[in-house]
Simulated scan of single mutants.
Amino acid sequence: MKTILLSMLLAVAVADKPSFTYDAPAPRPSGPVRVIEIIRDDRVHPAADGSYTFDVETEDGISRHEAGGVGGSQQGSVNFKFPDGQVFDLQFVADANGYQPQSPFLPVAPAFPHPIPAHALRQIERARQEEAARARGEIRQAPSQSYGHPQ
């Protein structure tokens, strides 16, 4: 009985063991593959100061331009045409302020749905005044409301 129970537990453990291997996807039957030619590939590899540029364009209308300079700042653009004929254009800058893309195709957050209530504005102003007074040393830091070590 113990042997049967042990073999059943072993079978369940082996069946539930996750697989940590990756198998390439099975090939899908498809028609002939069209190779898109690169019609322009102009690159200036990084110079001693770190500056570089590249311009790439493919025969199907995709283009990419990027330039970088001293300090790690970069700017560039990506352009292509959607199947419906619309032209996608993305301009970007990446610098100390982070990645800053600009495009009419990027989503925009909706406007705040309503004005901030007057009582909330009063609380915000009161907190600002208390913080300024605390910074000037006019009032002491309020005791913590959390539990902690006795003082």
Rank of each mutant, 00 (worst) to 15 (best):
M1H: 13
K2A: 07
I4A: 14
L6R: 11
S7V: 11
M8H: 00
L9M: 14
L9S: 14
L10Q: 02
A11Q: 00
V14C: 12
A15L: 12
D16T: 13
D16G: 07
P18Q: 09
D23M: 11
A24Q: 15
P27S: 07
G31E: 11
V33S: 03
R34C: 04
I38S: 12
I39F: 06
I39K: 11
D42W: 04
V44F: 05
H45R: 13
H45D: 15
H45L: 14
P46M: 13
A48M: 09
D49A: 08
D49M: 06
S51K: 11
S51M: 08
F54H: 07
V56A: 03
E57F: 00
T58H: 08
A67W: 01
A67T: 13
G68A: 07
G69F: 04
V70H: 11
G71C: 02
G71D: 01
G72I: 00
G72S: 08
G72R: 03
S73R: 05
S77K: 01
V78F: 09
V78Q: 04
N79T: 15
F80W: 12
F80V: 01
K81I: 01
F82K: 15
D84Q: 14
G85I: 00
G85N: 10
V87A: 13
V87P: 01
L90K: 01
V93K: 10
D95W: 02
D95L: 04
D95V: 02
G98L: 09
G98W: 07
Y99H: 13
Q102I: 00
S103T: 02
P104E: 06
P104I: 09
L106H: 03
L106G: 00
P107Y: 10
P107N: 08
P110K: 03
F112H: 05
F112S: 09
F112M: 10
I116H: 05
P117M: 06
H119R: 07
H119C: 00
H119Q: 13
L121M: 15
L121F: 01
R122D: 07
Q123E: 15
E125L: 10
A127N: 09
A127G: 04
R128N: 10
R128H: 12
Q129R: 14
Q129M: 11
A132D: 14
A133V: 01
A133M: 15
A133Y: 04
R134A: 10
R134I: 02
R134Y: 05
A135M: 11
A135V: 07
R140K: 14
P143K: 10
S144K: 09
Q145M: 10
Y147P: 00
G148C: 06
G148W: 02
H149P: 03
P150M: 11
P150E: 04
Q151L: 11
Q151C: 00
